[in-house]
């Protein structure tokens, strides 16, 4: 028992004197750099919707489109309905669109709004980019 106490005392003495290891001088900088990189990557690549939701939506859209095109009968490829749809759209563009007339006032208003949105989008993008990179 006494031997153990002596051993404990000796180990206490030598281990308290044991030198601590020094990390490289740029250690803190490297850690912060990795954190910044991770944060930027997370901001750039994080999808708004999870993958499964995107896949589900795509599947549903494909089913709906197929149903719309083939009239609910996927087997009737020999007589496709999409040809009719395309010809209908064609006639709508050629017949109905020229009839629509916009006043000069409406055209200028839409133009000004479009320019404003463009400027604001660019300014906001720069603002957010600066905020995320300097944080």
């Amino acid at each position: 028992m006494k031997d153990n106490e002596h051993l404990e005392k000796l180990m206490d003495e030598i281990l308290q004197d044991a030198p601590l290891e020094q990390p490289p001088h740029d250690f803190t900088h490297s850690v912060i750099k990795r954190i910044e990189e991770e944060r930027v990557a997370a901001l750039s690549y994080r999808p708004i919707m999870p993958k499964w939701a995107i896949v589900t939506i795509v599947i549903v859209l494909v089913i709906l489109a197929s149903w719309g095109i083939f009239g609910g009968d996927l087997a009737s490829i020999s007589e496709p309905r999409y040809a009719k749809l395309v010809s209908l759209m064609d006639s709508w563009f050629s017949e109905s669109l020229p009839v629509v007339k916009f006043s000069n006032k409406t055209v200028y208003t839409v133009l000004v709004i479009a320019v404003m949105i463009l400027i604001q989008t660019t300014a906001l993008k720069r603002l957010f980019d600066r905020r995320f990179t300097s944080a």
């Binding site: 290891e21 020094q22 250690f27 850690v31 912060i32 954190i35 944080a135």
Partner: peptide, 23 residues
């Protein structure tokens, strides 16, 4: 998300953490 404050934490504990890892 304050990186400067986190750098303080790293500076405070890096020697101990590195000693554990090295050993």
């Amino acid at each position: 998300g304050d990186s400067k404050e986190f750098a303080k934490l790293v500076d405070m504990y890096k020697v101990m953490v590195f000693t554990i890892a090295q050993r």
